[in-house]
């Protein structure tokens, strides 16, 4: 796991014996016709599913392209969509081999801006540098703020 520390979480719990509650006299139980016994549960049980997470989080250092898009409040939604779509298509077409795709998890709103994040589906060793070049091209062509994020 690289330079990660590994070990075991610490938990702080205060443990006591179970609190005993005899509900025999609770409201409504004095009338007749009650049946006492054990609940029946119907459970479908299997062996646990093993998951090795060693490779997880490795993508945190992956480069991504961030398109920061701002519109006037009066801009029609169709124009917003069309402009954003063109931006995304232009960026993706500039480096088709990287397979830039819309990143649902990292795309977000920042204040009144929309940050569209495109992540390489097929990252290469020089992906970061190539994204910087794409960012510059898109920035100059559209005047839209574009940045390369880790």
């Amino acid at each position: 796991m690289g330079d990660r520390s590994t070990g075991t979480f610490l938990t702080k719990s205060v443990t006591r014996p179970a609190v005993g509650v005899d509900a025999a006299g609770w409201t409504g139980t004095s009338s007749g016709g009650w049946t006492s016994g054990e609940f029946v549960t119907r459970n479908a049980t299997r062996e646990p599913v093993s998951v090795d997470c060693s490779g997880w989080g490795a993508g945190t250092a992956d480069a991504a392209l961030e398109l920061v898009v701002t519109f006037d409040a009066g801009t029609p939604p169709a124009a917003v969509f069309e402009h954003t779509k063109k931006l995304v298509e232009a960026a993706a077409a500039a480096v088709p081999d990287l397979g830039l795709t819309y990143d649902f998890a990292r795309s977000r709103a920042e204040g009144d801006d929309v940050v569209v994040v495109l992540t390489p589906r097929r990252p290469t060793a020089d992906a970061r540098q190539r994204l910087r070049e794409v960012a510059e091209v898109v920035r100059q062509a559209t005047r839209v703020p574009v940045r390369v994020a880790a």
Binding site: N43, P48, D52, C53
Partner: peptide, 17 residues
């Protein structure tokens, strides 16, 4: 649909950056 399906994941080496 009333049957309870118990799913247990044994997660190893889970990263918390």
């Amino acid at each position: 649909q009333l049957t309870v399906h118990e799913v247990v994941f044994k997660m190893e080496n889970v990263p918390f950056p």
